[in-house]
């Protein structure tokens, strides 16, 4: 839940407001950690219970390990060759990050183009939607034919998958600026570029970051799908190997690793958002902000 805007009516008391904010943000690291623990105790407890329940169920003699390995089994298996996991993770991460960066570089300008011209909107929008409607698995073989077995085809697939949400969110974000604001800027003699950089782009930023968050997780999906189709490295490839060897603990371990990597990437974007966005926009952009009361 985001905080309701604070309304200060009556005698000005801005110092009080500012001071409260400072207390709010300036807590020491240790105290911050304490806060965090207290706030998330319930959540951690639930996860703990689930993990224990899984361990118990997984260890039952009637549940074979190839159907549901217990967390401890998975951990054991994963700990046996961390080197391979790290290597394949790095391959996948590289594909995801490269694909995502390309999607950002292409997605934002595409969104801006679509907003700025009716013609381009009519030209590009159906194309984008059509591209998005194609199951990415269906694209993968074509991309492999074009770009080979190496990482390029996976980067391309990650890029294609991640671009759509970034474009759409850029379009939605750019539409946040009310027409009167554009009139106001024009009446001041502002150029289109000034209106864009001083108003529209910043107003769009929270939405664009929302698009990044969806995009980065989709980039992960794209890259892994690519690795599934044809590759000789990456977590998707390693997953297939584990699958062919009926190595269920490893299979589970890789799946968990994939989701952990996605979560990590997601929060990297969130962190970036915190660093880049001006404070009032930051609050609006994310319901959860560090140090905020629930």
């Amino acid at each position: 839940m985001r905080d309701a805007p604070k309304v200060l009516e009556g005698p000005p008391a801005p110092e009080a407001e500012l001071r409260r904010d400072r207390v709010h943000r300036g807590t020491g690291l240790a105290r911050g950690a304490g806060h965090w623990l207290r706030r998330n105790a319930a959540v951690l407890l639930v996860y703990g219970f689930l993990l224990i329940a899984w361990e118990i169920v997984g260890s039952l003699p009637s549940v074979p390990a190839f159907i549901l390995p217990s967390p401890s089994e998975i951990l054991h298996r994963v700990a046996r060759d961390p080197g391979k996991l790290v290597f394949h993770s790095l391959v996948t991460l590289q594909e995801v990050v490269l694909g995502f960066l390309l999607a950002v570089l292409a997605g934002i300008p595409l969104g801006v183009l679509i907003v700025s011209s009716r013609f381009l909107e009519r030209l590009l929008y159906p194309l984008l939607v059509a591209l998005q409607a194609i199951p990415k698995v269906a694209l993968a073989p074509i991309l492999v034919i074009w770009f080979g077995f190496g990482p390029t085809s996976k980067v391309t697939l990650a890029f294609v998958t991640a671009t759509f949400p970034i474009v759409i969110n850029t379009v939605v974000g750019m539409a946040q600026t009310p027409p009167e604001m554009i009139h106001l800027m024009r009446s001041l003699g502002a150029s289109g570029l000034q209106t864009f950089t001083k108003v529209r782009l910043i107003a769009a930023a929270p939405h664009v970051f929302g698009g990044f968050k969806i995009g980065i997780t989709l980039a992960m999906v794209g890259a892994v799908v690519g690795e599934f189709i044809a590759s000789n490295s990456g977590l998707g490839y390693f997953l297939l190997i584990a699958n062919n060897a009926f190595d269920a603990p490893l299979l589970f371990g890789i799946v968990i690793l994939l989701s952990l990597l996605s979560i990590a990437l997601f929060y990297v974007i969130e962190l970036l958002e915190m660093l880049v966005l001006p404070r009032p926009l930051r609050r609006r952009a994310s319901g959860v902000r560090p140090g905020a009361g629930v």
């Binding site: 009167e180 009139h183 106001l184 800027m185 009446s187 502002a190 966005l277 009032p280 609006r284």
Partner: peptide, 24 residues
């Protein structure tokens, strides 16, 4: 110009909002 909506830029402080025309 002043419109029905105040059209303040949320990410700017009050002073920075007032100075927008000066900047433009």
């Amino acid at each position: 110009m002043v419109f029905q909506r105040d059209l303040l830029l949320e990410w700017r402080t009050v002073l920075e909002n007032v100075l927008l025309p000066v900047e433009v």
